[in-house]
Amino acid sequence: MGERSRLAEGLRIYRLIAGMWIRSLLTYRTSFVLTAFGNLLVTGLDFVAILLMFAQVDELGGWTLPEVAFLYGLAATAFGVADLVLGSMDVLGARIRDGSFDILLVRPGPVLAQVAADHFALRRLGRIIQGVLVLGWGLLTVDVDWSVPKALLLPVTLISGAAIFSALFVAGAAFQFVAQDAAEAQNAFTYGGNTLLQFPPTVFGRDLVRGATFVLPLAFVNWLPASYVLDRPLPLGLPDQVAFAPPLVSVACCAAAGLAWRAGLRSYRSTGS
């Protein structure tokens, strides 16, 4: 099978399984409504915390509220997309521990697609909605000297950011083949990374920013492109061209995550029953 038809098959299987999970959750209608509502409330409060901070100060690390909203919106939207599509991958560890992962292996269809769709939860849509709202508000209120490259960079950044976060989810899942109780560690990187990116790079120490740029390239999700769009100097004194690197970085991340996934799957050893 060519890579292309495998991708198509993967998407088909993903849709089928995600559909089953949505139907399963809908059988518990009340609980579904309640969790969806609760989720929306909690994600909503996330940005309120930042608003409260700005009630005390005018700037955060030299960034104004609209600028921070822009930054926040970029990260939250990109993360939201990855979280909706792959956010449940942390249940893989539990499936490996109890042996039910075996079942996925005897079905046709790419295992990655089956695992990605496992425990698909529509309630995660709340994050995307909230991210888009904050991003929209930021764009409306922020002071930008718009140009064609800046306007083009915006959608490219969102797509690349979602891909970078997705790679992080897949790599974290791959790690669970080695350590089945690594779900917490995975969440520390994904959710933690998202939280980190909601604040300007200037509030963090140089070493942390360096790590988030060169080791775990989260800075490409929003810090670098947003700095360029806002006519601010790029963190770490990087040249402006680096702001256009997100697509390349995201492709590299996805390739690395794909390799990690393959290695993890190959090392799978099932359980003793």
Binding site: M20, R23, S24, Y28, D102, R107, S273
Partner: peptide
């Protein structure tokens, strides 16, 4: 597998 199921629990 006698010890597992492929069926969807809630459906």
């Amino acid at each position: 597998f006698g010890q597992r199921t492929t069926l969807w629990w809630d459906l």
